[in-house]
Design a protein around this nucleic acid. Structure first.
Ligand SMILES: [Zn+2]
Ligand SMILES: [Zn+2]
Ligand SMILES: [Zn+2]
Ligand SMILES: [Zn+2]
Lengths: 149, 149
DNA sequence: TCCATATTTGCTATTATATGTCAAATGCTG
DNA sequence: CAGCATTTGACATATAATAGCAAATATGGA
């Protein structure tokens, strides 16, 4: 029974975790709501929120992203480009989606797949390893880049 | 038709790529041959090689690892702990193995699976994405840590 | 509504991994 | 063995992220 992640619900989620709802956190939240399809780095978020609030500090952005990831609002990804990238997490993602990363333009597309779950069962038994999470990435060339190669 | 990766063969491989076979590179190579089962970071390699050659510099280690990865002797991995980890690459690994990473002790075990290849075909067609590489990691708890939790 | 206080912010300094610079040292080819 | 391009090691630099701290502020209770 998961709430839909509207702006107001997330503010309440913050309060429920005894985090304060500050203007900075609201601005950052709005930024993600306006870019649900993106995978933003902290620096990129910083640039975007400065338009709405030029006073905001970079450390605040990092801290806010940490908190939003901790309470399940954002997902923190590592696409191998040396910085963490955050995205708005959909509701009901008990096993999150995976990513296709273009080696040329850096574009990130997505796909869902439940196949990994059956593989997890096999691995747990064969390797005596209790799996709690997985991370699958495909590197290659997106349609646009493949054409103009 | 791939050569078996002995010390001598790798030295020749260096020469074939017009890289010089220096004592430092030999020491680093030996270190990996003595730890074929490990996934070493640059800093760890640095510590190990200093026993045999205390004069060696950290930058040299980084540069050597880069070169050895470039010519296919080492594999460079990212296990999400903030540093790259290198391992001796087996011969005939057209599609490399995957990793089970313990969230408690950091131990890395491995498993092979060709099962992703069929998934790649599906993804290529469905998402118009030309896959050239993939990266699959499982996070969880190894047998030892699971017992003493 | 206003106050008290613990949280949060923004600035700066710091950490950690990795790379760039460059003179001195050194493998390699002839 | 000589000549030279490559490589080394020391140091400086780059970049992402975190830590420390005084000033500002959101929030629950009076
Ligand atoms: Zn692309
Ligand atoms: Zn995504
Ligand atoms: Zn463990
Ligand atoms: Zn491995």
């Amino acid at each position: 029974m998961e709430e839909i992640k509207t702006f107001e619900n997330i503010c309440n989620l913050l309060r429920n975790h005894s985090y304060k709802v500050t203007p900075q956190r609201q601005t950052i939240l709005q930024t993600f709501l306006e870019h649900v399809d993106r995978h933003l780095s902290a620096e990129e978020v910083y640039m975007l929120v400065k338009h709405q609030n030029p006073e905001i500090g970079l450390a605040t952005v990092y801290r806010s992203l940490d908190i939003l990831a901790e309470i399940g609002v954002l997902l923190k990804n590592d696409f191998g480009d040396g910085r963490s990238r955050y995205e708005f997490s959909r509701k009901d993602e008990h096993h999150h989606h995976h990513h296709l990363i273009c080696l040329r333009c850096g574009d990130v597309s997505e796909f869902d797949d439940d196949w990994l779950e059956s593989l997890e069962t096999v691995i747990t038994k064969r390797n005596h390893f209790k799996i709690v999470d997985h991370d699958l990435k495909f590197y290659g060339y997106c349609h646009k880049c493949e054409e103009t190669l």
